[in-house]
């Protein structure tokens, strides 16, 4: 479904591109050159992030992560789960089934909720890229606040679910 959404974006993009080309050929080429330039300026950051993520993935086996989040109980388990989420770059579509599987195997609801929240909203590995676009202060504040609020969301879910 993640893929499905990406295909959808492709269809829309091609549509815009054709429309733009019909309206003004020169402007469209200019736009594409701009796209390319904007892409090049952030490419080194992207490659660095990918290398870092690759390293994390290779060094830490998925089973280890599952064990920590699954077995971790209490405040410690919640904090660890939040950090695992904050540092990972896993698509949510993979994260939801993992979380539901772990829940069935005895993992805490707060651990799972905080994991999903930080996974989607906190990006510690992508922080250098975020700094480039939003500036240091905004990027750091956004990530810290998102991390803090992930606990709030988890607590609320726990209250409702129990």
């Amino acid at each position: 479904m993640d893929l499905f959404f990406t295909y959808y974006i492709y269809v829309v993009t091609v549509g815009f591109l054709v429309l733009s080309f019909v309206k003004d050929r020169k402007k469209t080429i200019l736009a594409l050159i701009k796209s390319w330039k904007m892409f090049l300026t952030v490419l080194p950051q992207f490659i660095a992030i990918l290398l870092l993520v690759g390293l994390l993935l290779a060094a830490v086996m998925p089973e280890t992560i599952q064990n920590i989040i699954g077995a971790g109980s209490g405040v410690f388990g919640i904090v660890i789960s939040s950090l695992v989420g904050a540092f990972s770059l896993v698509p949510v579509l993979i994260a939801f089934p993992i979380a539901s599987e772990l829940l069935k195997n005895g993992a805490g609801i707060m651990q799972m909720t905080v994991f999903i929240s930080t996974l989607t909203t906190v990006g510690f590995v992508t922080l250098p890229l975020e700094v480039k676009y939003l500036g240091k202060k905004t990027a750091v504040l956004r990530n810290v606040l998102a991390l803090v609020f992930s606990f709030v969301v988890a607590y609320a879910v726990k209250v409702v679910m129990s």
């Binding site: 469209t28 736009a31 594409l32 904007m38 992207f46 990918l50």
Partner: peptide
């Protein structure tokens, strides 16, 4: 995966920037 995801995004922001 990154390049697949980012190609249309960058094309769109290029178009947005111009139009």
């Amino acid at each position: 995966n990154f390049l697949f995801m980012l190609t249309p995004i960058f094309v769109c922001i290029g178009l947005l920037d111009i139009w």
